[in-house]
């Protein structure tokens, strides 16, 4: 097949791939040139596995033209629910079920708001404040520490952190969901052209509802993982996590307006953001000028620039 397409759109696409490869390479080099004890990397990666799970779930939401700004708050709320129920001496299974139920309800509420016609940005901005407030109120700003050993014992399974298994299985699950089910197909259609989807008998509101609900359940899973790992649930946890999550999805190459993207891209995005962040943190030990918080600037810039670049890329290919 001689399909060496040299249209400007194709060139830009290659450039995008190149940029992404470079970013990933920079991140990996930064990390591996700095790290002294590779085994220590596991601990550094664990929190990012949590962000990664959230990013994978968010991919479906963004593909379908939505966004969920309330993920961080949802995780905190679920963590508080887990902490409270365990404090009430609930059996572990019940407590976990309550946590999952909390995530499900929070997600379904978001989905419901979007389905009745609110803009996803505004709806989840409101619930972001609301869920955080709920977490604060329920906990009385207290942290919950000292989870039972029955929960803590899951920290590693066969010597490998539980985070790893969860990340892999969520990755697999979202890959199947997005690329191999009817719901996944509908995501792309709705994200590309919601009107056409409606005219083609796609139940767009039901799709919204299920995607946000799944996102809420993923948040609950992350809350449990976080509790297992840190042995503490804080109502203030995951503040600002929505940016990191969205960063992973967008930097990977999924369009912020939906309709184009996928799980593999998000995995690449997770790789880039994670390693840039960790690498910069390592660097800041050596260069005091690079305060740990300069990482925020890098991620913020990355999101804006990549989002704009992707958008331009798509509009460029429109004319092709």
């Amino acid at each position: 097949m001689n399909r060496i397409d040299s249209s400007p759109g194709q060139l830009r696409r290659i450039a995008t791939l190149g940029i992404r490869g470079c970013l990933l390479a920079i991140g990996l080099t930064l990390v591996f040139s700095q790290v002294q004890r590779p085994a220590a990397l596991v601990d550094v990666w664990l929190p990012w596995a949590e962000i990664g799970i959230l990013a994978l779930a968010m991919t479906a939401v963004i593909l379908c033209g939505g966004i969920d700004l309330s993920v961080g708050s949802t995780v905190a709320l679920c963590g508080v629910v887990l902490g409270i129920t365990l404090q009430w001496q609930w059996p572990l299974t019940f407590a976990l079920a309550a946590t999952a139920g909390c995530g499900l309800c929070a997600g379904a509420f978001n989905g419901g708001l979007v389905a009745i016609g609110l803009s996803p940005l505004v709806a989840t901005l409101a619930t972001m404040a609301f869920y955080r407030g709920l977490a604060m109120t329920l906990s009385g700003r207290e942290r919950f520490a000292g989870f039972p050993d029955s929960l803590r014992s899951w920290q590693t399974v066969a010597g490998i952190p539980l985070h790893f298994f969860c990340f892999v299985s969520v990755g697999l699950a979202t890959w199947i969901l997005i690329h191999h089910t009817r719901l996944g197909r509908w995501c792309y259609v709705i994200g590309d052209n919601r009107t056409a989807a409606r005219f083609a008998a796609v139940p767009d509101r039901r799709v919204d509802l299920s995607l946000y609900t799944l996102n809420g359940i993923a948040a609950a899973l992350v809350a449990v993982l976080h509790a297992i790992d840190e042995n503490v649930a804080i109502p203030d946890a995951f503040r600002g996590a929505e940016l990191q999550v969205i960063a992973c999805v967008v930097v990977g190459g999924t369009l912020i307006t939906g309709g184009e993207g996928g799980v593999l891209r998000t995995l690449i995005g997770i790789g880039i953001v994670t390693h840039l962040e960790i690498g910069l943190r390592f660097l800041s030990y050596r260069f005091p000028l690079l305060t740990p918080n300069s990482r925020l600037i890098v991620i913020g810039l990355l999101v804006i620039l990549v989002a704009i670049w992707n958008q331009r890329l798509q509009r460029g290919s429109d004319n092709a």
């Binding site: 966004i67 700004l69 940005l121 901005l125 600002g240 929505e242 940016l243 969205i246 912020i256 918080n293 300069s294 990482r295 925020l296 600037i297 991620i299 913020g300 810039l301 999101v303 804006i304 989002a307 704009i308 958008q311 331009r312 509009r315």
Partner: peptide
């Protein structure tokens, strides 16, 4: 410039300004 919803842009600049 990016024709991106301002919430996305300001979510990014929010962290930049904080940094």
């Amino acid at each position: 410039v990016g024709r991106v919803h301002p919430i996305v842009v300001t979510l990014g600049t929010m962290t930049i300004y904080r940094g």
